[in-house]
Design a protein around this nucleic acid. Structure first.
Length: 465
RNA sequence: GGCGACGUGGCCAAGUGGUAAGGCAAGGCUCUGCAAAAGCCUGAUACAUGGGUUCGAAUCCCAUCGUCGCCUCCA
């Protein structure tokens, strides 16, 4: 039984899908006008991990992630650069897809774009007007009428009366209520625009997700996800639109990831304290970012700095250490630590699942995995053979794989391997002759070249650092 | 000002009523020519502070302090 925290009820609830065995999940994607940053990576990783785990538990996941490719900022930036806004958006969509692939994030089963969903959006707005939930203005805008929606504010825990004080109305707006928000904006000169019953214009921010959800997944979905900075107003407004339109509850579970913290505050485009995914990946392995996310709780802020990244990287090394080959090449061992391995497999499977079932407690799951790593390493040291180690290592690979970790050893150019082997042979000979200075030099120089040499009683081993 | 989340050892962090997982860092040890790796051991007189409920609380309630998010575009 999987339990997950629902922002709407502020409680953990048992996962009950609309259709047995199928999870319909919609996650808000980025507005594509510049390089995606590691905060986007966190969000994408969180929902990738959730998806992978749901699939591991036997669900088929219909995973939709949208691209907002029609937006003020895109238009603004494109105008500055003197290029077509659609071309700009397309470039960043492709970049983001590449980022996701580099981060080992499974591609969403569907990736709709606003610019390709225009008829559905217009129909949606039209439907809201017909039902009395929206109204056009003389200048060609269309607003959602919040006073008509009696439970407006239920997701973010706000009441209309309380919000009015701080609300601001721009000069020239024709809202009937300060909190009314735009479903459709009349076109300004030089902007991309689409024909509509209200004249040329383009959609407001929130309506696109409602329309794409409806088009891709239907009137009701299981999980709606995104960063917790989207709770208000974006998701609040989405609920208002969709439920007013369909008359049915929209998403069963609202899931929100916490914000990535850089230097004590949220990383965001508007604050300008950004590290792009590309920049991150030029310095660290993709698994490091994932490990950082796994070590924490997806709902809590994530501390992102050199220290936590180093810790994540070392933790990764530790997981990998269990996958190193057996030392004992002869007969099977009967040492206690080796005999205990099958039981450890059972233990880790159970502990892993229990943790993950409880609102995707990845930190707890990692704890179980690290215990298992110790069991494997102890067994190896105690003399387990390859065949004795393999089932446990397979289990570790399987479970870390569920979390989306690759645990790949770094590879150099393949043809270097035999020369490294040759150097090690020479070094082994040098060691036999107690030529310590020479053998240390070989080891040091190889280390500088990214090859780690380790000696043991059974001989020397090497791997890329 | 309003709404919400959170405050656990040097750092990251699990645990939401029964007596503190795990990782990183640190110190000691085993192994070892040295180094590294792996393994073992050591560490929170009690989980922001002050009250309260309870046989019993990090875990529930209240207050205080602090941090963060949202209230405007934002994953």
């Amino acid at each position: 039984m999987i339990r997950l925290y629902n922002t709407l009820t502020r409680k953990k609830e048992e996962l009950q899908t609309l259709e047995p065995g199928i999870v319909k999940m919609y996650v808000c994607g980025p507005t594509v006008y510049n390089d995606a940053h590691v905060g986007h990576a966190m969000s994408a990783l969180v929902f990738d991990i959730i998806r992978r785990y749901l699939e591991y538990r036997g669900y088929r996941v219909r995973h939709v992630m949208n691209y907002t490719d029609v937006d003020d900022k895109i238009i603004q930036r494109a105008n500055q650069m003197g290029i077509d806004p659609f071309a700009l958006a397309q470039k960043y969509i492709e970049d983001f897809n590449q980022n996701l692939e580099d981060l080992n994030i499974l591609p969403a089963t569907s990736k709709p774009q606003v610019s390709k969903t225009m008829p559905q959006i217009i129909a949606f707005v039209q439907g809201l007007i017909e039902r009395g939930y929206a109204y056009p203005t003389p200048s060609g805008d269309v607003y959602f009428r919040v006073t008509k929606d009696d439970d407006y504010g239920k997701l973010s825990g706000r009441k209309l009366e309380e919000m009015q004080a701080g609300a601001r109305i721009e000069v020239g707006e024709e809202k009937q209520h300060p909190m009314d928000f735009a479903l459709w904006k009349a076109a300004k000169p030089g902007e991309p625009a689409w024909d509509s019953p209200w004249g040329k214009g383009r959609p407001g921010w929130h309506i696109e997700c409602s329309a794409m959800n409806l088009a891709e997944l239907g009137e009701q979905i299981d999980i709606h996800g995104g960063g917790n900075d989207l709770i208000f107003p974006h998701h609040e407004n989405e609920i208002a639109q969709t439920e007013s339109y369909t008359g049915k509850p929209f998403a069963r579970y609202w899931m929100h990831n916490g914000m990535l913290q850089l230097g004590g505050e949220k990383m965001s485009k508007s604050l300008g304290n950004i590290i792009s995914i590309k920049e991150f990946l030029s310095k660290r392995d993709a698994d490091v970012m994932r490990m950082l996310v796994l070590n924490g709780s997806y709902r809590a802020p994530l501390v992102f700095n050199e220290e936590t990244l180093d810790a994540a990287e070392k933790g990764l090394e530790r997981l990998k250490s269990a996958l190193r080959p057996a030392i004992n090449k002869s007969a099977d061992s009967t040492a206690d630590a080796v005999v205990a391995l099958p039981a450890a497999i059972q233990t880790v499977e159970t502990a892993f699942t229990e943790a993950m079932d409880d609102d995707f407690n990845t930190a707890g799951a990692l704890g179980a995995l690290f215990d298992f790593v110790r069991a494997i390493n102890t067994a190896r040291d105690a003399g387990a053979t390859e065949s004795q180690l393999r089932p446990a290592q397979d289990t570790l690979r399987k479970l870390t794989g569920v979390l989306g970790l690759r645990l790949t050893e770094k590879r150099g150019a393949g043809d270097a391997d035999k020369f490294i082997e040759l150097l090690l042979e020479v070094r082994t000979e040098a060691r036999k002759q107690k030529l310590w200075a020479l053998s240390d030099m070989i080891r040091d120089r190889l280390k500088e070249l990214g090859v780690i040499v380790e000696d043991s009683r059974e001989g020397s081993t090497w791997r890329y650092s």
